[in-house]
Design a binder for these strands. Structure first.
Lengths: 375, 375
DNA sequence: CTGAAAGCGCTTACAG
DNA sequence: CTGAAAGCGCTTACAG
């Protein structure tokens, strides 16, 4: 498929951690390597509480390293897992696009995609490896949030083949692929500043994740670089819905000394704000400029077409699935840490601020000192 | 989840075809029932060409009837399949919403959802039952198009647990759940007629499926009921994209004797048309009325909010998955044939036609005789 | 085209 | 907490 061609990688590092193993892994081969009986291997794989924790750990580590695979009948499974470490957010366009990409990325090596619920099904006493083996999953693609990042780390530590989508990890053993939106967030806000905006609101969703944290940081960076004091009252946290975006717009427009531009870190918020502006007969960009974020092509669905920081969510899913399944097929173990830069597109939702709202004097002048001290 | 509460069924019939079976099904129990050895059962399940086709068929039928389930290790699989009989269209909002519903519907009975590619993986010589067993799938939810409907029939004929989403079948052994949009399509077009519209265009996507065929039929019904001659030149087939909708709008607006309203059978087409209208500074509904179709909540994402025929795609997926997994858990076999009516919502994209484009004379008068004879 | 029997991979009483 | 051995469910030469 055209849309899933390989992306150029700008910030990519690949670490070989193990040579490919040879031969098929079985309870027998694991038993030999672990120096235990096949009985113990079976028990360890099935989480029999009788097994010594140390033994269990050793067996599972060898199982992962040797590429042990559950069988349906006598055949090796070909399931690629797709799991959330926290709440599933599949109704969000980002996730729908990622999954679409994952399915196509799994195509080449003829893997099927199994959607599993870690939260629902993982027994508290079993390891992640045991859980995935039980589901016939050979490798897993993970979606995570800040508060459940440790689960990704734990899965990687067990040595189970995995890759996280849209988070970053400093531990070299955790594979991930993410879109790096911070630089373009800076660029987006600087673009607004260059157009003459000084009071710029920021809207993001209320679930803490790395993407939104990055974009928030980019927003603050840009303000700081232009000596515009950061104003907490211009920051809006909302649920990622159209209603959330509409709320931000309504609040912004009714503020005293209102902002002349809004940068949204979430596609649905941006679309909801545009919609609300139409309803209130507020003209974009004449009355207010809006920059959105777009994981797919929602920016083209509204009028005016949104100036937006964009990433190809389907591409991230495709890349993750293709790399992981190739790794599984070639029986090798690598770690991928890939950051794909976003791109910034200027369309029609941004322009100069309304004349009557611009402070008099030099546009490049920094905000007055009393504003700074107010923070 | 609030959004996945059980829907009221208006047109539902449930047919009991078999009493629940008792005990676990195995090669041994199937062998006994089929009067063959376990060797032959194993061969039949694995599609060994040596097996007599009649024997194979008998064995597979018994396997389905007795609820034979592949095992991972020694455990029964809990995979609910989600498959397309033709091209996958997961990037469409309808499919994304359906899948979201399926996942939540599978939750109650703790099933996982396995996305498989029939086209890619089914070997030409194996039966559907064999294919699904090989994947560890216990029941399958199918998405289909007109030209691959026969695959759904074939799967049902084999006796494999299944349910089709969004098609209808007359054979009593094929389970389905669909949204019935014909009546509301009539209502939508009649609403336009009541507002004074006479030249009403129809836009739908180019992939022949039952939903769109229904809506087209509803469109024609409504015209006929009001004695408005059907005009093929007002029918637009487009790919289900924003660009497709934009094209329809541009073509409609440049027609001689142009339509004053458009009824779209696809959400993306409708959104694309609204967007294009803004770009051309065409006012909705002052210059043209638009009625869309909405599987999710896209109608709220554009301005003006779209008057639309709506269905809850996620609800269809939820219902299908919940019924199928309950059936599998209770080891019973039933057929479901359920039609959930759509609903028609009047919002802001519809109004009276522009005065200068309305034919003089009584609005309720039928079209001139010479137009009728032109068909 | 079919089956009895050996075999494979895994699990599970039983024994220690 | 562990293992030898029996057993389970399925597959696969081998024989006919």
């Amino acid at each position: 498929m055209e849309q899933f061609r390989k992306q150029t990688e700008y910030f990519s590092q690949t670490v070989d951690t193990k040579a490919p193993t040879t031969g098929m892994s079985s309870v027998r081969s694991i038993a030999k390597l672990a120096g235990v009986s096949i009985t113990t291997v079976s028990r360890a794989l099935n989480n029999d509480p009788a097994v010594n924790p140390k033994t269990r750990e050793r067996v599972l580590a060898i199982a992962n390293r040797s590429g042990y695979v559950a069988t349906v009948g006598r055949r090796a499974t070909t399931n690629l897992g797709f799991s959330y470490t926290g709440e599933a957010t599949l109704s969000h366009p980002f996730d729908a696009a990622v999954l679409d990409g994952v399915i196509h990325g799994a195509d080449e090596q003829r893997f099927d995609v199994l959607l599993t619920n870690l939260k629902r099904d993982k027994r508290p006493d079993e390891s992640y490896t045991q859980f995935f083996l039980r589901k016939g999953i050979r490798g897993v693609i993970l979606r995570t949030m800040q508060e459940s990042r440790s689960i990704c780390q734990a899965i990687a530590d067990e040595g189970f083949p995995m890759i996280v989508i849209s988070e970053r990890f400093s531990s070299p053993n955790v594979s991930y692929i993410d879109g790096d939106s911070r630089a373009d967030s800076v660029r987006a806000v600087e673009y607004l500043i260059a157009l003459g905006h000084r009071r710029i609101a920021f809207g993001f969703h209320s679930i803490p994740d790395r993407d939104h944290t990055d974009r928030f940081a980019g927003y603050k960076d840009a303000l700081e670089k232009s000596n515009i004091p950061f104003d907490e009252s211009l920051v809006y946290r909302q649920r990622y819905t159209l209603a959330g975006g509409a709320t931000v717009l309504k609040m912004v427009m009714t503020m005293r000394d209102r902002p002349t531009a809004i940068f949204f870190a979430d596609p649905l918020l941006a679309v909801g704000a545009v919609k609300q502006a139409h309803a209130l007969q507020i003209s974009i960009p004449k009355d207010i400029s809006i920059i959105g974020f777009d994981d797919t092509n929602l920016r083209y669905g509204v009028h005016p077409t949104l100036t937006a920081v964009c990433q190809d969510a389907a591409g991230l899913g495709f890349e993750a699935a293709q790399r992981l399944t190739r790794m599984l097929t070639n029986r090798e173990q690598k770690t991928f840490q890939i950051s794909v830069p976003t791109f910034f597109e200027v369309h029609e939702s941004t322009g100069a601020p309304p004349a009557h709202l611009v402070e008099s004097g030099d546009k490049n002048q920094s905000a007055p000192a009393q504003l700074k001290s107010a923070i």
